[in-house]
Design a protein around this nucleic acid. Structure first.
Lengths: 233, 233
DNA sequence: GTGACGTTGTGACCTTTATCACACCATTAT
DNA sequence: ATAATGGTGTGATAAAGGTCACAACGTCAC
């Protein structure tokens, strides 16, 4: 009865090839796996736990981009660039274990292992498309669109399908949601209240339950793009 | 005295390897090289002319993402994905010639030519970072931030340095600028008027001249990221 | 030249969103 | 049990941005 909706499309092949190497690192809640400005010489594959990727602007505002879990690849943005530092922060939301891949090791590996390179390019390509669609939703449909898009993505990535609704199985504060939308806590709160009044959502033990996903999709002209593109990870 | 500021960082190597194959296609102003929904089985390298990449939402609003010229690669978003259709539109702004690379040919090439694959991954990686920074500017600093960011990027990609200022050597209507910012023509017009009043900009023969680039950068907390990341192409 | 067309500039008005302020829970520590 | 903490819910108000309307200006075709 309880089933994860999300399906990760990146071939197991890639994960295995990458996971087999280097070491595994444990890191606990609220710590940063990496931060902006640090030397970007590692990539990570999450084994357990949850990690949030975000950008913090000089004036203290935070823009969250992804919430990642088992199987997701992070720290990838700076590959193949020499002077690279991380542009983003990776904050641990739940105690995590990550497989560490050194950048130079990976680059060597990619040069010699054609299949790996192919899988990797495929993954990059897909990840890029994901970012592109997120971009559009956030810019084109105002703050409401940003929130609805975020909710839909959360549903696809962390939704647990139940007979009459979908439980987003992750606890997020209004402020955290606001960070995904580039808006304020109060605005998110008001928009959520509104959605509850319209019976589109309800809360259950601090988690969001989506009762009418179609409503959210209709409001932002969702084109029903492949689920793999419409996710938060 | 007149000099392009922009430096394209993708290795000539990559361009040569790709340009050497398949055929060259001419296409005239206002036509589409490709449109959303079409089968995405080709990639292009621009030889001459200018092409704009944008997303059109069902309700008719347009979000522009890039303006590309000689040397830029477009149509790349759907590589390695089987069921892929283009997510974006490529509209010709000035009569153009493009080198056409068939997707399956490219994929075969990438599998056998390690060096090409490496260059290609490097390019993807960089392009991804570019999109990411654009994203942040547009979402985090309101419409004004979106416009300022767009102007800075235009300056980096199409700016011609002169003794006392920088000429953005491309004619754009207020509406076209608005499409880059996800805002309205009127808002752009007002913001531009404001910048003229502040002597940050001036117009010259329908083109924008930037007199005080630092003002724009300061307003959006520009971190002086590498120019290669902060461009419109 | 004249009209058609596309663009710019701007005022008026309205909607959306941000900000401030504060009451109201829960939960946890003492 | 009480206080401290961190989150939620909501009103009041202000700022930002969108929409409508229309005048003014160039350029081009004829």
């Amino acid at each position: 009865m309880v089933k994860q909706l999300s399906k990760h499309s990146i071939s197991e092949n890639l994960k295995e090839l990458l996971s087999s190497v280097d070491h595994v690192q444990k890191i606990e809640k609220n710590r940063f796996l990496f931060q902006e400005g640090e030397d970007a010489d590692q990539m990570f594959i999450i084994q357990s736990g949850r990690i949030q990727i975000s950008k913090i602007s000089p004036d203290g505002r935070e823009l969250s981009l992804r919430i990642c879990q088992k199987g997701d690849i992070i720290g990838e943005l700076t590959l193949f660039t020499d002077d690279a530092t991380y542009l983003l922060n990776a904050k641990v939301m739940e105690d995590a274990e990550v497989a560490v891949i050194k950048k130079d090791y990976l680059e060597r590996e990619l040069l010699t292992n054609t299949e790996l390179a192919f899988e990797f390019m495929k993954w990059m390509s897909e990840h890029f498309r994901k970012t592109q669609t997120k971009f559009r939703d956030l810019v084109l449909h105002g703050k409401k669109g940003a929130l609805y898009s975020t909710l839909i993505r959360l549903t696809n990535s962390y939704g647990v399908k139940r007979p009459d609704d979908i439980l987003i199985d992750i606890v997020l504060t209004n402020q955290e949601l606001a960070n995904f939308c580039g808006t304020s806590r109060e605005s998110v709160n008001r928009m959520l209240s509104d959605l509850k009044r319209k019976e589109v959502l309800e809360m259950e033990k601090n988690k969001i339950v989506v009762k009418d996903l179609q409503y959210l999709k209709d409001e932002i002209n969702c084109e029903n793009c492949p689920i793999v593109l419409c996710s938060i990870d």
